[in-house]
Design a protein around this nucleic acid. Structure first.
Lengths: 301, 301
DNA sequence: AGGACTTATGCTCGCATCGAGCATTACTGC
DNA sequence: GCAGTAATGCTCGATGCGAGCATAAGTCCT
């Protein structure tokens, strides 16, 4: 009935990321045949003492995973973002979680992040899809409109700003280059959109997460949430590079993390992979009290 | 009834900040005699197309103010954060808004931010309250507990990290040094807490906002939302300093903002204030496409 | 008019950081 | 022994930033 008070439902959505085989990965649920979906569940207004605890509960229930690092990301609440909710307005409080596991738990699997955002991986130079598809299409879309042209310029550079993941996704959405445009309009997607689509606004949420994480790398020691307790400097570097979508100068990277006190060597070495054995390092939590903003600062500068 | 489904209410809270007379100010509503409260209102699940539009609507309704720059801050949803909501669970999606106005609109007034957080203003050296009250009390609170001691060390430095506003407020809360502790426990506050209290968790929300804003200053040109279209470099510097709670070297500040292309001179000069006339500058939006992360970078480094 | 005071503006050191590259070491595999 | 690979040490040069000196151009007071 129209006279009933309009209701709001609150869901807790989880962007759970890991890095393995030099690739950032996102935990998704649901049948393979369907569009991927983020793990999520309803807030229990009485049971969940805090939103974060509610999120952890939902994640365990749905994937069996006990996540460690968790951070609130953003709250999504546009009208119409969940056409499945009927007359209910659905809010999603999204969280970013980082895990070390690479083995997909029950009913869930890891999805390569750069399948969702192929234009974000610049480790082997600018990805082909940018020059061949995205830039031309955006140029057509912008035409002579100065606002559109400027928006394209800020999002795609030069200079390329790795952090603007969300802005770029939303630009592609505005220009009709992702399948979610058709889906949101109630049409069947042509299937020719750039990157792999997700259900609802979940790819937008994932974009928010990747951008946030890239930014955070520069001023907080979050990478270590994704690594085992002991690691070589190359493993550390590869993990950072996977997330940042850029490559780094090896010697300078080593200098950076050692000089700033982010890591400390354990005397141990690993061997067996061809090449000189590498020393194993560990994260040095004391850096938090020594430096104001410890992280991989020169990532995007 | 216990059998009724537990309900969730969603509110939109606004942290509206301005800078005038070299002081950051926060818009609060409610009678002077009572604890200050942030402007807020319920989400209209049918009417508000987006959360941000809903927030703008609430702000206009409550204060008559049309805010310009708006950014989502955080969503607060701890159980028990709103004892007045009865059995309802209340979520607040908080937004940060920046305005130029200094004249308090209807039923509202500006409150000096450093009345809320006197320990955050380091423009005249370390504030007295830190050395005389806060540090000794925290030392007593920490005792020999290594975790507590480390928490105190990271929050209070050295080095002082201007961005950790929320962490510091929560530390003071943990240690029972702010009046909200007693209020939340249902007791009358002794009135001896540090800084001025607000109702509910609104001071926590304000702390989140100040920290976020301080951080954002370093990589986005947000200061200009608080300034008139044309301003002198000293006005710009004073505004940054007011928010950051630090002083900056004048010549270096000028060099920074000019070299990075954040501002450009209009030929005009202002006179009449004693001292050599200053040139009027304006913000240069083109910086957004030229530099990846334009802002007052060296603020906290 | 002159001097004190205030603010704006230009410029120059010195240090730390960072990008880029060269050189050497120590393993694996054939 | 030799090729290949990765680790590690070191050196330039450019740039950014902290700190300060010096000068310019107004106001206000006497």
């Amino acid at each position: 009935m129209d006279t009933a008070p309009a209701q709001v439902t609150v869901a807790l959505d989880a962007v759970i990321m890991a890095v393995s085989d030099r690739q950032p990965r996102l935990l998704v649920v649901g049948p393979e045949s369907d569009l991927p979906v983020l793990p999520a569940g309803p807030l229990d207004p009485r049971g969940d003492a805090t939103l974060e605890l509610g999120l952890r509960r939902c994640v365990v229930e749905q994937t069996g995973l006990e996540v460690g690092y968790v951070e609130q990301l953003y709250t999504f609440g546009d009208r119409g973002r969940r056409p499945d909710a009927g007359p209910q307005r659905q809010l999603s409080v999204a969280y970013l979680a980082l895990v070390r596991e690479a083995a997909p738990p029950l009913e869930a699997g890891f999805l390569d992040v750069y399948e969702l955002f192929p234009w974000e991986d610049h480790r082997n130079g600018e990805p082909a899809v940018l020059g061949e598809t995205i830039r031309p299409a955006l140029a057509r879309w912008a035409g002579d409109d100065p606002d559109r042209r400027e928006r394209v310029a800020t999002c795609l550079g030069p200079p390329w700003d790795g952090i603007r993941v969300l802005e770029r996704y939303e630009l592609l959405y505005s220009a009709g280059l992702v399948d979610e445009c058709a889906l949101d309009a109630g049409q069947a997607p042509a299937g020719r959109g750039v990157g792999r689509a997700m259900r609802f606004d979940h790819r937008r949420i994932a974009a928010t997460a990747l951008g946030r994480l890239r930014g955070k790398l520069t001023y907080r020691p979050v990478v270590f949430e994704l690594l085992p307790e002991r690691f070589t400097l190359l493993e550390l570097q590869r993990t950072v590079e996977a997330l940042a979508g850029t490559t780094l100068h090896k010697q300078n990277f080593r200098r950076l993390v050692e000089r700033t006190g982010l890591v400390e060597g354990t005397g141990e070495r690993v061997r067996g992979l061809g090449g000189r054995p590498a020393e194993l390092f560990r994260y040095r939590p004391a850096v938090l009290t020594e430096r104001p903003r410890p992280g991989v600062t020169p990532l995007y500068r």
